[in-house]
C-alpha cells in the first residue's frame, strides 16, 4: 500500500505545484533557483528538475514572461514575472484553492 500513498501524494503535489510557482512569482520577479529555494523550504517539491518543464509550459501558455539579467556569479539569469493573463489565472486559482480547502474541510469535519 505504501506505493499507493506515494502516488497519491505525488498526484496532489503535482496539481498544487503549478499554483505555488505562480504564487511565488506573483510576489516578486525571480529566477529558477529562487523559486526552487522556496519550494524546497515549503517541502512541496521533491526533485528540482520538475520545475523546469512547468516554467517553460507556463511561459508558453502566456502566463509568464521573462527577462535576462546579468549575474555577479556565473552566466545571466532568466527572471520570470507574471503576465496580465497570468495574474488573472492566478486569481482564478486562488479562488479555486479556497473552494477546495472549504470543500475538503467541510467533508473532513462533518460529524456523523
Amino acid at each position: 500500500m505504501g506505493i499507493k500513498i506515494e502516488n497519491a501524494q505525488a498526484q496532489m503535489r503535482k496539481g498544487v505545484l503549478e499554483y505555488c510557482i505562480l504564487s511565488i512569482i506573483s510576489r516578486n520577479s525571480c529566477y529558477a533557483s529562487d523559486i526552487l529555494k522556496e519550494l524546497k523550504e515549503a517541502r512541496i517539491i521533491v526533485v528540482e528538475g520538475t520545475l523546469y518543464p512547468i516554467l517553460t509550459r507556463q511561459k508558453n501558455a502566456g502566463l509568464l514572461s521573462y527577462r535576462w539579467e546579468e549575474s555577479t556569479q556565473g552566466p545571466p539569469r532568466k527572471y520570470y514575472e507574471l503576465t496580465k493573463t497570468g495574474q488573472e489565472y492566478l486569481r482564478e486559482l486562488d479562488k479555486a484553492w479556497k473552494d477546495l480547502i472549504d470543500a475538503v474541510e467541510k467533508i473532513r469535519n462533518k460529524k456523523k
Binding site: A10, R13, K14, L17, V46, V47, E48, G49, T50, L51, Y52, P53, I54, R57, A61
Partner: peptide, 18 residues
C-alpha cells in the same frame, strides 16, 4: 541527478501536456 531527479520523475511529475 539526485537533486534534479531522474528523467522519468521530471517529466512524468511535471508534465500534464496541455
Amino acid at each position: 541527478i539526485s537533486l534534479l531527479g531522474r528523467p522519468e520523475d521530471i517529466i512524468d511529475a511535471g508534465s500534464e501536456e496541455p
